[in-house]
Deep mutational scan, measured.
Amino acid sequence: KFGRVHERAEGPAKILAIGTATPFHWVDQSSYPDYYFRVTNSDHLVDLKEKFRRICNRTMISKRHMFLTEEILQKNPNLCSHNEPSFDVRQDILVSEIPKLGKEAVLMAIDEWAQPKSKITHLVFCTRSGVDMPGADYQLIKLLGLSPSVQRVMMYQQGCFAGGTMLRLAKDLAENNKGARVLVVCAESSAIGFRGPSEDHPDNLIAQALFGDGAAALIIGSDPKMGLERPIFEIVTTAQTFVPNGDCHLALHLREMGLTFHCTKDVPPTIAKNVESCLIKAFEPLGISDWNSIFWILHPGGNAIVDQVESTLGLEPNKLQATRNILREYGNLSSACVLFILDEIRKKSGREGLKTSGDGLDLGVLLSFGPGLTIETVVLR
């Protein structure tokens, strides 16, 4: 008597548009150690500064975009301390800036989509910054002038794996609601975790050397309108798992001094060791076991992770080039990073006149991972 209210779509979910945005301000990685130790009044920690310089040199990052300028840091000195309470200051900045950054990426996506924004039916927003109620999803709806009846899902504090999570959720929403057009937004800022150095917490140096700011937005829907919408990728399958006891290797915690970062040297080999089982589960039903026969979007948690995944799986050097390019130009953008790589690989395919948006290949994989050593596996066509 009370059956399904919403009719299912006929076809699989497809990515119809991609937009990205970054803050205008950026830092050069080669000179960042001098800048970082100067603005945090830590130049007296000579040995720690040299250690940080070595870490920065190993990241293979060229530059990173950041909202925090020297002027902002001078006005808010607690942000430059390692342990002073600064959460309220971070909140005041990020509750406002995260939706604005997301808006810039959304406008780029809508411009490519070339359809009225009134056709957006759902919003899925993800960030690890600016936790608030009502959330960044609500603020973004107002900034864009979208209908208050847009169906919203707000996900805070997920971390680097969440780019894949957003695709998984959007696929379910698009395929189970005929005519749905799902706006996916990942907006991230390193301002939540920026803090001064400490000899007692070397993990913090890794975070300060890796993370950048950026937002990515996608429009996802099934059954694209012929002649009006141009699909870029099809989302074939999605899956999530985590490595048992992985939280002892990688975890982040909200504290009075901001978001703290805990990471062990076992993260790269542990991820590399567990990736292939995810690939087998995803691609065995499709008859694929040659990992060089697919295109790759791999989250660059750090250069060591990229190198070890490449080595463990025997990947050809060009397979992870898009990942390395984004890491070099932006650093680790947390949940937004794989979506930047997705954009990079389709643009490169277009520039080179390849037959598909995925490096000329039919199928590919998007792998994202993060806290708890959670792994998201997304098969794309």
Rank of each mutant, 00 (worst) to 15 (best):
residue 1 K to F: 15
residue 1 K to S: 06
residue 4 R to I: 08
residue 6 H to D: 08
residue 6 H to M: 12
residue 8 R to T: 04
residue 9 A to F: 02
residue 11 G to H: 07
residue 11 G to C: 05
residue 12 P to M: 06
residue 13 A to D: 03
residue 14 K to Q: 15
residue 14 K to W: 11
residue 14 K to R: 05
residue 15 I to W: 03
residue 15 I to F: 04
residue 16 L to H: 03
residue 17 A to K: 00
residue 19 G to C: 05
residue 19 G to F: 10
residue 21 A to C: 04
residue 21 A to R: 04
residue 21 A to E: 05
residue 22 T to W: 07
residue 23 P to R: 04
residue 25 H to Q: 06
residue 26 W to T: 04
residue 27 V to D: 10
residue 27 V to F: 08
residue 28 D to R: 09
residue 28 D to P: 03
residue 28 D to K: 06
residue 29 Q to P: 07
residue 31 S to G: 11
residue 31 S to L: 04
residue 31 S to P: 04
residue 31 S to F: 12
residue 32 Y to V: 03
residue 32 Y to C: 08
residue 32 Y to L: 12
residue 33 P to Y: 12
residue 36 Y to V: 01
residue 37 F to A: 14
residue 37 F to R: 13
residue 39 V to R: 05
residue 39 V to D: 11
residue 40 T to I: 11
residue 40 T to G: 08
residue 41 N to H: 09
residue 41 N to S: 04
residue 46 V to T: 13
residue 50 E to D: 14
residue 50 E to A: 05
residue 50 E to S: 10
residue 51 K to W: 04
residue 51 K to N: 08
residue 51 K to G: 01
residue 53 R to F: 08
residue 54 R to K: 11
residue 55 I to G: 04
residue 57 N to Q: 03
residue 57 N to C: 05
residue 58 R to L: 15
residue 58 R to W: 01
residue 58 R to V: 01
residue 59 T to V: 14
residue 61 I to P: 07
residue 61 I to N: 10
residue 62 S to F: 01
residue 63 K to P: 01
residue 65 H to G: 07
residue 67 F to Y: 14
residue 67 F to A: 12
residue 69 T to I: 06
residue 72 I to A: 05
residue 73 L to E: 07
residue 73 L to C: 09
residue 73 L to W: 11
residue 74 Q to P: 03
residue 75 K to G: 10
residue 78 N to Y: 03
residue 81 S to K: 09
residue 81 S to L: 12
residue 81 S to W: 10
residue 82 H to A: 05
residue 85 P to R: 06
residue 85 P to F: 00
residue 86 S to P: 07
residue 86 S to A: 12
residue 86 S to F: 08
residue 86 S to L: 06
residue 87 F to W: 14
residue 88 D to S: 11
residue 88 D to Y: 12
residue 89 V to R: 11
residue 91 Q to D: 11
residue 92 D to G: 07
residue 93 I to L: 13
residue 93 I to T: 08
residue 94 L to G: 12
residue 95 V to R: 11
residue 98 I to M: 11
residue 98 I to K: 07
residue 99 P to T: 11
residue 100 K to H: 06
residue 103 K to E: 11
residue 103 K to L: 09
residue 105 A to P: 02
residue 105 A to I: 01
residue 105 A to V: 08
residue 107 L to R: 14
residue 107 L to V: 11
residue 107 L to E: 15
residue 108 M to Y: 08
residue 108 M to T: 07
residue 108 M to N: 11
residue 108 M to A: 13
residue 111 D to P: 02
residue 111 D to V: 03
residue 111 D to M: 05
residue 113 W to M: 06
residue 114 A to M: 06
residue 117 K to N: 08
residue 120 I to N: 01
residue 120 I to K: 00
residue 121 T to R: 01
residue 123 L to M: 07
residue 124 V to S: 01
residue 124 V to G: 04
residue 125 F to D: 03
residue 127 T to E: 10
residue 129 S to M: 15
residue 129 S to P: 14
residue 129 S to G: 13
residue 130 G to A: 12
residue 130 G to T: 04
residue 131 V to M: 12
residue 133 M to I: 05
residue 133 M to K: 04
residue 134 P to R: 12
residue 134 P to T: 11
residue 134 P to Y: 12
residue 135 G to C: 08
residue 136 A to K: 06
residue 136 A to E: 11
residue 137 D to V: 10
residue 137 D to M: 13
residue 137 D to P: 12
residue 139 Q to D: 07
residue 139 Q to E: 15
residue 139 Q to H: 06
residue 140 L to C: 03
residue 140 L to N: 00
residue 140 L to P: 01
residue 141 I to C: 14
residue 142 K to V: 13
residue 143 L to W: 08
residue 143 L to Y: 04
residue 144 L to M: 04
residue 144 L to V: 00
residue 145 G to V: 06
residue 146 L to S: 00
residue 149 S to L: 09
residue 228 L to W: 03
residue 228 L to A: 05
residue 228 L to P: 10
residue 229 E to V: 09
residue 230 R to G: 08
residue 231 P to H: 10
residue 231 P to R: 01
residue 231 P to I: 01
residue 231 P to W: 02
residue 232 I to C: 10
residue 232 I to D: 03
residue 233 F to T: 15
residue 234 E to W: 11
residue 234 E to N: 05
residue 235 I to G: 03
residue 236 V to K: 03
residue 236 V to A: 06
residue 237 T to D: 13
residue 237 T to H: 05
residue 239 A to K: 12
residue 240 Q to M: 01
residue 240 Q to A: 08
residue 242 F to Y: 13
residue 243 V to G: 10
residue 243 V to H: 13
residue 243 V to S: 10
residue 244 P to L: 04
residue 244 P to G: 11
residue 245 N to W: 07
residue 246 G to D: 09
residue 247 D to F: 06
residue 247 D to W: 11
residue 248 C to E: 15
residue 248 C to F: 05
residue 249 H to K: 15
residue 249 H to V: 08
residue 251 A to E: 13
residue 251 A to L: 08
residue 253 H to D: 11
residue 253 H to I: 11
residue 255 R to L: 07
residue 256 E to F: 07
residue 257 M to K: 15
residue 257 M to P: 13
residue 259 L to Y: 09
residue 260 T to W: 10
residue 260 T to V: 08
residue 262 H to E: 15
residue 262 H to M: 03
residue 262 H to N: 14
residue 262 H to L: 02
residue 262 H to G: 14
residue 262 H to P: 14
residue 263 C to Y: 06
residue 264 T to W: 10
residue 264 T to R: 06
residue 265 K to F: 07
residue 265 K to G: 12
residue 265 K to I: 02
residue 266 D to F: 11
residue 267 V to P: 10
residue 268 P to V: 03
residue 269 P to C: 15
residue 270 T to C: 12
residue 270 T to L: 08
residue 273 K to E: 08
residue 273 K to A: 09
residue 274 N to C: 14
residue 275 V to D: 07
residue 277 S to F: 04
residue 277 S to Y: 03
residue 278 C to Q: 13
residue 279 L to W: 03
residue 280 I to C: 15
residue 281 K to V: 05
residue 282 A to H: 14
residue 283 F to E: 03
residue 284 E to G: 10
residue 285 P to W: 14
residue 285 P to F: 06
residue 286 L to P: 04
residue 286 L to N: 01
residue 286 L to C: 05
residue 287 G to K: 03
residue 288 I to R: 05
residue 288 I to Q: 04
residue 289 S to Y: 15
residue 290 D to H: 11
residue 291 W to C: 06
residue 293 S to Y: 10
residue 294 I to A: 09
residue 294 I to P: 03
residue 295 F to D: 06
residue 295 F to V: 13
residue 295 F to W: 06
residue 296 W to Q: 08
residue 296 W to S: 08
residue 297 I to S: 06
residue 299 H to A: 13
residue 300 P to G: 03
residue 300 P to I: 15
residue 300 P to E: 04
residue 300 P to C: 14
residue 301 G to S: 15
residue 301 G to R: 07
residue 304 A to Y: 04
residue 305 I to V: 10
residue 306 V to D: 00
residue 307 D to P: 11
residue 308 Q to S: 11
residue 308 Q to G: 06
residue 308 Q to D: 10
residue 310 E to K: 09
residue 311 S to F: 06
residue 311 S to E: 13
residue 311 S to L: 02
residue 311 S to P: 00
residue 312 T to A: 06
residue 312 T to S: 09
residue 312 T to N: 07
residue 312 T to F: 07
residue 313 L to R: 02
residue 314 G to P: 11
residue 315 L to W: 01
residue 315 L to T: 02
residue 315 L to M: 03
residue 316 E to L: 12
residue 316 E to N: 00
residue 317 P to F: 05
residue 317 P to L: 03
residue 318 N to Q: 13
residue 320 L to F: 11
residue 321 Q to H: 09
residue 322 A to M: 01
residue 322 A to C: 13
residue 324 R to T: 09
residue 324 R to G: 05
residue 324 R to L: 02
residue 324 R to S: 05
residue 325 N to Y: 12
residue 326 I to F: 13
residue 327 L to Y: 15
residue 327 L to Q: 11
residue 328 R to W: 05
residue 328 R to V: 00
residue 329 E to Y: 00
residue 329 E to G: 05
residue 332 N to A: 05
residue 332 N to W: 00
residue 333 L to S: 12
residue 334 S to Y: 09
residue 334 S to M: 02
residue 335 S to A: 10
residue 337 C to E: 14
residue 338 V to S: 14
residue 339 L to T: 10
residue 339 L to A: 09
residue 339 L to M: 12
residue 341 I to D: 11
residue 341 I to F: 00
residue 345 I to S: 05
residue 346 R to E: 02
residue 346 R to D: 05
residue 347 K to P: 02
residue 347 K to D: 01
residue 348 K to S: 00
residue 349 S to C: 03
residue 349 S to G: 08
residue 349 S to F: 09
residue 350 G to R: 15
residue 353 G to S: 11
residue 353 G to T: 00
residue 355 K to C: 03
residue 355 K to G: 03
residue 357 S to G: 02
residue 358 G to F: 08
residue 359 D to Q: 08
residue 362 D to S: 00
residue 363 L to A: 14
residue 363 L to M: 08
residue 364 G to Y: 02
residue 365 V to T: 15
residue 365 V to H: 14
residue 365 V to S: 15
residue 366 L to C: 10
residue 367 L to G: 15
residue 368 S to W: 02
residue 368 S to I: 00
residue 368 S to T: 07
residue 368 S to R: 05
residue 370 G to R: 14
residue 370 G to T: 12
residue 371 P to M: 01
residue 371 P to V: 04
residue 373 L to V: 08
residue 374 T to N: 14
residue 375 I to F: 13
residue 375 I to T: 14
residue 375 I to R: 15
residue 376 E to G: 01
residue 376 E to W: 00
residue 376 E to L: 01
residue 376 E to I: 00
residue 378 V to S: 15
residue 378 V to W: 04
residue 378 V to Q: 15
residue 379 V to E: 14
residue 379 V to A: 15
residue 380 L to W: 03
residue 380 L to E: 15
